[in-house]
């Protein structure tokens, strides 16, 4: 399990990095916690790795002074997990971070890396949808909802680099819930559901579709939680795989939606 040979560049500016990505078959290396296993399996064999870890100014969690947050793409999971500011503003994201992999992975893996890898069973992409994040790149700003085009497939161009995540403020009094079921601690979710309840409900399913998915039909049925949970089951199109069938995942989506909505409703009421 040794990776194929590649060239390596560690640019110190975004412009330099973008220029390097102009080459065919180049790949961005952020924290590497998803990419390197794929390289070790030789599932990917890029000719050039562009390590963006040495570009200054991409690692921060900042108050946007409007109640939201700006998070640098190279901010590591552990920093996100332990940020007091983030826990206060976006407790649902803080809660979801508890399910992300293991300490050593969280120490190296970055929020931007996870979002761009786009694993449909990963927590962070789903949370971006839930929180209506704006993803700022070297070219534009993309709504999280428009970012995922398929499993491990994003709207990013080959030479486009995600630089910042903008989390708009949650209205005061928003309740939230996050529920995940995995076979083993720290594994990718078999299925997870996040929900927020304010003036309206917002629900996102993770690991139950080829991308993280807003469950709009279920949202529309809120406050009838039972009906929303039933609708959620039909809204996702999970695959059968080694760890769970599509039927089971639909079942989980329904169960977790109910629990997430109940928590969110309770939080909103209090």
């Amino acid at each position: 399990m040794k990776p194929a040979a590649f060239e390596y560049l560690a640019p110190v500016s975004l412009a330099e990095a973008v220029a390097a990505l102009g080459r065919d078959d180049a790949k961005i290396l952020a924290g590497g916690q998803s990419l390197v296993p794929m390289l070790n399996f030789r599932l990917r064999a890029p000719s050039l790795l562009v390590d963006i870890g040495r570009i200054p100014g991409l690692d921060y969690i900042e108050d946007d002074r409007a109640g939201g947050l700006r998070i640098g793409a190279m901010t590591r999971h552990h920093t996100v997990e332990t940020s007091d500011l983030l826990r206060q503003r976006f407790p649902v994201l803080h809660a979801a971070m508890q399910y992300v992999a293991h300490l050593a992975i969280r120490n190296k893996g970055t929020i931007g890396g996870s979002l761009c890898h786009g694993d449909p069973a990963a927590e962070l992409p789903g949370l971006m949808l839930l929180l209506d994040a704006r993803l700022k790149t070297t070219q534009r700003t993309i709504a999280a909802e428009d970012f995922y085009e398929g499993a491990l497939d994003t709207a990013l161009a080959e030479d486009e680099i995600l630089t910042e995540i903008l989390l708009p403020p949650l209205p005061a009094g928003t309740g939230w819930g996050f529920e995940e079921f995995a076979r083993r601690s720290g594994d990718f979710a078999l299925t997870a559901v996040g929900a927020t309840v304010g003036e309206e409900a917002r629900i996102v399913a993770i690991g139950a579709h080829e991308t993280p998915l807003r469950l709009r039909a279920a949202e529309a049925l809120f406050p009838d939680i039972e009906a929303a949970a039933e609708a959620a089951r039909e809204e996702v199109s999970p695959n059968d795989d080694l760890h769970g069938s599509a039927d089971y995942r639909r079942h989980l989506v329904s169960v977790l939606t109910r629990h997430a909505l109940m928590s969110a409703r309770e939080g909103a009421a209090s």
């Binding site: 399996f41 076979r183 083993r184 601690s185 720290g186 594994d187 990718f188 080694l242 760890h243």
Partner: peptide
């Protein structure tokens, strides 16, 4: 509860990583 080597109908082994052959951690 967890561990299972899986072959598909064509004899391909589907559990060729420790992500897929699931051994227990300290939590389980």
């Amino acid at each position: 509860l967890l561990e299972e080597v899986v072959y598909d109908d064509t004899g391909q082994i589907l559990t060729a990583s420790l992500m897929d052959y699931v051994v227990p951690t300290a939590v389980e």
